[in-house]
Design a protein around this nucleic acid. Structure first.
Lengths: 150, 150
DNA sequence: CATTCAAAGTTCCCTTAGGGAACCCATGTC
DNA sequence: GACATGGGTTCCCTAAGGGAACTTTGAATG
């Protein structure tokens, strides 16, 4: 049997993993976000196999996370984030926050974020969209939603 | 050569992936968060191979995300989130938010979160820890931090 | 017009990791 | 003493990643 496909599960985590859960995909997204838009740039930066990079880029384009556009009359292409992809990068910011706190050690965070609105270097914080108070994993109950499996 | 190890990169995303980037790991974390704490429960819920589940649980315990505690005089164990692990679940909530918006379709979200503080079902929202305004991937500049590679 | 060049993939082979099922082991219960 | 149960191990098979060489397309160069 082939490897498990998470996309069919009634779970938004599993479905999201179906889009960016494969090895390298989040790092590819990070690179595109950071401004590396071409195949050769990403390949050189990550040291990823060309075969796998091709597969991942196609997968991300197929799922509407990246878009592929020519930048020359020769067959040369650039990859950019779509709206869907940019919102996925929010996830990377949260991932960065966790890694900065728990894994960066003495050296401190490798990358800082400066927030356009206030101009300050800051972390991202999770808040309830309804009341605005902090909202973390320990602050919620899980309830079945309309799309839950029977 | 063995498969690439992301942990050595000067990038908190890569380092975080080294902890929960392997296939199944986020879903295992989700199950533990949802209250499935025993090997058999998780194995039955996910349909994961017992071999891989053993490997993943050990990896998560080794990295301080889960803790393993006996619950019987027989060799029976439960897995629970540590503080480090609970904060990692924040990431899963953001992942859920994205999946709910972009992948759930007509049926709607499979799971809802009720926020303890206000009692309402709500999404999680990303805000700047400094100024409190919304903070998304398109609202920040990236700067090298103290832990950046030379 | 032939040669060279660079970006973006393909193709091939090898190794490694996941899937599935069977097996093992320590402790309880009947 | 036989059986059950949770929590793993072990085995084999297949699929996916790594690496390097090769291909293709069009432009620039001489």
């Amino acid at each position: 049997m082939q490897r498990t496909n998470f996309g069919g599960m009634a779970c938004s985590i599993a479905r999201t993993l179906d889009v960016i859960g494969e090895p390298w995909s989040p790092l590819i997204l990070r690179d595109v976000w950071a401004g590396l838009s071409r195949f050769e740039q990403i390949q050189a930066d990550l040291g990823i196999s060309r075969k796998v990079l091709t597969e991942r880029l196609n997968h991300l384009v197929d799922h509407g996370v990246l878009e592929r556009s020519p930048y020359d009359r020769r067959p040369r292409f650039e990859y950019h984030l779509t709206q869907k992809g940019a919102e996925l990068v929010d996830l990377l910011m949260v991932m960065t926050g966790w890694g900065d706190k728990w894994l960066a050690g003495e050296a401190g965070p490798p990358v800082l974020y400066r927030h356009h609105a206030c101009g300050e270097v800051a972390r991202v914080d999770l808040r309830c969209a309804h009341c605005g108070e902090p909202m973390h994993a320990t602050d919620v109950d899980l309830l079945p939603g309309p799309g839950s499996a029977v």
